[in-house]
């Protein structure tokens, strides 16, 4: 297992099911743009791994490499111990990818029928339609579906071949809350049936809701990985913004302050524990004004993780 050294053993994968897909020091460039850099990662049987990161982080590139649609510039990749691009691999893999336009004049069941024919052991049509919640829509043309329904058809196409390994590239992008939760339930059902799922997302919430393991990716590198709880504990910071006379140095020395930065006449303080910092702040400066406390968003989380990553190196 080439990628074993990069991941810590984790409670949820005790017994170490074998690797079904692995990256080992993979780098991928598109022209001068480095999409993945020295990327090592392993997906084990039966788990759901979320690749979490902002747009352009390299998530889709990772999926494309695992599907054999792109070749790495260096490093090694394997899926089911073989070449990701081979037919032997493709018959065991399903993929839901972001696509600009799907032929609109074919009906839902026709799309499913055609894709099912590509696989040696497809699910029965009725089962595929049921899993994706499309029974009522099977005679509708693709072009007549809502965005959420279209996503469900793409999901159906990814599972119709009864694959062991499923790649879902931003499966819930553009879906409303209800449709998103429906798809989450369907994904959980697949895991219960022993499937392995690799999902990309830029919603921390989505990774948290589904994943056994999260890998946070930024600029083509994995900057953190672990269980959702571990990732959240490292990103669940608060942001305090206020106008104060206190010098930045004084604030920086307060207990619990991670980072201080001036911001348009105010200061922004990053901290893991807002209450303690606020107590100190209010004691030292009675004139504090325009006080705001907010949860650090995913952006801040990424920043925090990137900094942490840089500091460790």
């Amino acid at each position: 297992m080439g990628a074993a050294e990069t991941s810590k053993p984790h409670a949820s994968v005790q017994g170490r099911p074998e690797s079904v897909a692995s990256f080992s020091s993979v780098s991928k460039n598109y022209g001068k743009v480095r999409a993945l850099a020295d990327f090592s990662f392993e997906v084990r049987g039966g788990e759901l791994v979320a690749l979490l990161g902002p747009n352009g982080a390299g998530k889709t590139t990772a999926i494309r490499l695992l599907l054999g649609l792109a070749k790495p510039n260096s490093g090694k990749l394997s899926v089911f111990g073989g070449d990701p691009a081979s037919v032997e691999t493709h018959v065991r893999v399903g993929a839901m990818m972001q696509v600009g336009r799907v032929p609109e004049t074919l009906k839902v069941r026709e799309h499913v029928d055609l894709f099912s024919s590509y696989y040696p052991n497809p699910l029965p049509m009725s089962e595929t339609l049921a899993i994706a919640g499309l029974q009522e829509l099977k005679d509708r043309r693709f072009g007549a579906l809502s965005d959420g329904q279209k996503q469900r058809v793409l999901f159906a196409l990814s599972i119709c071949g009864n694959p062991d390994l499923l790649f879902l590239d931003e499966p819930t992008v553009g879906l409303d809350v209800e449709a998103r939760h429906l798809l989450w339930d369907e994904i959980r059902n697949l895991l219960r049936r022993g499937k392995t799922v690799v999902l990309t997302t830029h919603y921390l919430e989505e990774a948290d809701a589904l994943a056994d393991r999260i890998a946070v990716i930024n600029k083509g590198r994995i900057i953190a990985q672990g269980s959702p709880a571990e990732i959240k504990s490292r990103t669940a910071g608060k942001k305090i913004r206020c106008v104060t006379e206190l010098p930045l140095d004084v604030i920086r020395q307060m207990k619990g302050v991670a980072e201080v930065a001036p911001d348009r006449g105010a200061v922004v303080i990053q901290t893991a524990k807002a209450e303690g910092v606020l107590r100190q702040l209010l004691q030292l400066d009675l004139e504090v004004s325009e006080l705001e406390v907010s949860s650090a968003g995913l952006d801040e989380a990424f920043l925090a993780l990137t900094r942490e990553d840089g500091a460790r190196a």
Partner: peptide
């Protein structure tokens, strides 16, 4: 989680029938 013991077994490749695929396509 231990239900995927077959994950790495190289199943004998059963290619779907090329003629069927071409006709459907």
């Amino acid at each position: 989680m231990a239900t995927t013991a077959t994950a790495l077994e190289r199943l004998p490749l059963r290619r779907p029938n090329l003629v069927t695929i071409c006709l459907k396509e």
